[in-house]
Design a protein around this nucleic acid. Structure first.
Length: 271
DNA sequence: ATTGACTCCTGATGGC
DNA sequence: TGCCATCAGGAGTCAA
């Protein structure tokens, strides 16, 4: 589920419940995630969470002595709820707070992660090589164009490369390319600066809109049933194989690019 | 240096 | 109803 908008929505959702709260204990029921949860995660015990931030699709819980890194993978989600609520099957860990609440992590596929670092978080090996934030000023057409030199991979794969730009997942890659009218198969180094300016703008717009939508449906995290699916209303190509393009009525095509499904309109996205 | 295939894991869905 | 194949929002790792 999580691409950048959902991770950001999750961050904004848990922040008011977690910041300035003290962690009483960390309860781990299933340590086997993307990487094993390290033993030193227990350093969190007794710590005050100073700040909840995001870098790419990682959530960071900052304390005085170190930072917890949380990744949601493909199927992870976080929720704040009363510690009295019984965990269910895929609830792999809890951070119990001293106020009786807990931050609970659920992840059926276990592609997510929980890590601990005492370095400056940005220097952690999982974060240090990450590309720019798509909603930052550093991300623009000129940046994309420069990064695309000598990259022959399809432009869709290129914008999904987290060393280039973080947070553009499979859904929003297709959606952004549709908005920019760019064919997803086009080799990255074959696009003009002008096209990259349009693409960078589209990525910003699509992500920003999705964050705003997420903000309305995932507002209240102090509930067991925080529902998702906020973005679906706005999808113009993703998951719409064979359905008609909203702009030109041509059927939407589905192809494989880098082992991922990609959707586009062959008439609107000529290149 | 760059790429493409493979990998981890469970659940939902659809065909028979 | 069951059984099997296919696919899913991520991204690290490896071989070529």
């Amino acid at each position: 589920m999580p691409e950048l908008p959902e991770v950001e929505t999750t961050r904004a959702g848990i922040q008011p419940h977690i910041e300035q709260q003290r962690i009483q204990s960390v309860v781990i029921r299933q340590p086997k995630l993307r990487w094993p949860i390290p033993d030193d995660i227990n350093h969190l015990q007794g710590q005050l969470v100073k700040q909840v931030t995001r870098r790419g699709k990682y959530l960071l819980l900052h304390t005085d002595i170190g930072t917890a890194l949380i990744h949601l993978g493909m199927s992870g989600s976080l929720r704040v709820l009363s510690s009295a609520v019984e965990p269910s099957k895929h609830d792999h860990w809890d951070m119990m707070l001293t106020n009786g609440m807990c931050l609970r992590y659920r992840d059926p596929r276990r592609f997510g992660a929980l890590l601990w670092t005492t370095e400056a978080a940005e220097q952690h090996e999982r974060l240090v090589a990450l590309g720019v934030e798509p909603l930052s000023e550093a991300f623009d057409g000129a940046y994309l164009y420069q990064q695309a030199r000598r990259r022959r991979i399809p432009v869709k794969n290129f914008i999904m490369d987290s060393r280039v730009v973080v947070g553009v997942g499979n859904i929003y890659a297709s959606e952004s390319l549709f908005m920019a009218r760019i064919n997803p198969t086009k080799p990255a180094d074959k696009l003009s600066l002008k096209r990259y300016q349009r693409l960078a703008d589209a990525i910003k717009q699509v992500l920003q809109l999705a964050i705003e939508q997420g903000g309305t449906t995932l507002k209240d995290f102090v509930r067991e049933d925080g529902q998702q699916g906020y973005f679906q209303v706005h999808l113009r190509v993703y998951g719409r194989e064979g359905l008609t393009c909203f702009d030109c009525s041509q059927p939407i095509k589905k192809i494989q690019l880098g082992q991922r499904s990609s959707f586009y309109c062959s008439k609107c996205q000529r290149l």
